[in-house]
């Protein structure tokens, strides 16, 4: 590892000014960046610790009922947050899958997003909830849907003078539930071979009026399964419907063969996990067995 400048800005404008130079990288949890630096897979002239910026380390309720989570908030803080557990349980569950307890004590939500791993555990749940990524830079602020941030493995739309400041989870309508599940050969400390987050909203007649399904580890970026979502809208939950959605999600996926699994196996996993997550989200909303 080469020597680098180390900076600890106290505000977002200070952070943007520090980042706006060549080979400047943000350090939050460091769970990806530090191993990359150690193995000389990444060169850094400046490392910027974001954990001392108060505006990025808070969880705050929005006036409209949504929730704003600073990009530097740790996975542990999110997993233990009463409001996240009550309103966005799929996110609380997902962040507790990142590495181990000691990693979660350091890892940040913003890092999990900006690292842009197709397998990032917190991302599918954010996408299912329709979360926004709030970006700030020298030219001002912009907000994108979380899925619009990714351009490829490890790559995002963020410019050199821009940082992810926070994530906004919108207020959810009544009768909404989301569930994330992933498949790993080991139960703990592993990277998803495939993961699916399914969110549905039902109307008073138990018809599905909104569905957002997000897939992990089955494409160059986390993906929305739009064909699967379309099969669900306007329908009443049933096992047959969820089988069909699973089949559609498998075609929405564009996986590759690698050491963790073949493309065919990943497609199969997507169809199974999609069906299971939909069934389990429905169980939170409707009593009794699915028709």
């Amino acid at each position: 590892m080469d020597l680098f400048n180390f900076q600890t800005p106290r505000s977002i404008p200070e952070l943007i000014a520090a980042k706006n130079s060549a080979n400047a990288w943000l350090l939050a949890g460091g769970t990806d960046l530090i191993p990359q630096l150690k193995e000389d897979r990444r060169k850094a002239e400046t490392i910027i610790d974001v954990k001392k910026i108060a505006a990025m380390t808070n969880i705050s309720a929005e006036q409209d009922g949504g929730l704003n989570i600073g990009a530097a908030v740790t996975a542990t803080t999110i997993a233990q947050s009463e409001i996240v557990c009550a309103s966005y349980p799929a996110l609380a569950y997902s962040v507790a899958l990142i590495g181990s307890r000691q990693v979660q004590n350091r890892a940040s939500l913003g890092g999990n997003v900006c690292n842009a791993a197709p397998s990032a555990d917190a991302v599918p749940a954010l996408m299912s909830y329709g979360a926004l990524a709030n970006i700030e830079g020298t030219k001002g602020k912009r907000s994108l849907m979380v899925e619009e941030i990714f351009t490829g493995p490890g790559r995002t739309v963020l410019e050199q003078d821009e940082v992810l400041a926070s994530i906004t989870l919108p207020a959810l309508p009544e009768n909404t539930a989301a569930v994330y599940q992933r498949f790993t050969p080991r139960r703990e400390m592993d990277i998803a071979v495939a993961g699916v987050s399914s969110r549905i909203t039902l109307d008073a007649n138990s018809k599905i009026v909104d569905a957002k399904i997000a897939l992990a580890s089955v494409g160059p970026t986390p993906l929305r399964a739009k064909a699967a979502e379309m099969t669900l809208i306007g329908e009443v939950p049933s096992l047959k419907l969820f089988e069909a959605a699973g089949a559609a999600a498998a075609s929405d996926a564009s996986p590759i063969d690698d050491t963790r699994g073949s493309a065919d196996y990943r497609r199969h996993l997507v169809s199974v996990l999609c069906r299971r997550t939909l069934a389990s989200a429905t169980k939170e909303l409707i009593q009794g067995d699915l028709p």
């Binding site: 180390f6 600890t8 350090l27 460091g30 769970t31 530090i34 191993p35 150690k38 490392i47 610790d49 954990k51 542990t76 590495g99 181990s100 307890r101 000691q102 990693v103 004590n105 350091r106 400390m189």
Partner: peptide, 28 residues
Amino acid sequence: DTSQCGSCVVHVDGKSVKSCTMLAVQVD
């Protein structure tokens, strides 16, 4: 030395962390 095995765990401000994946300057 890659944040997996846990033999380097210490507490920083009361929380367990893997000290192979933190910089000394971060505990200032």
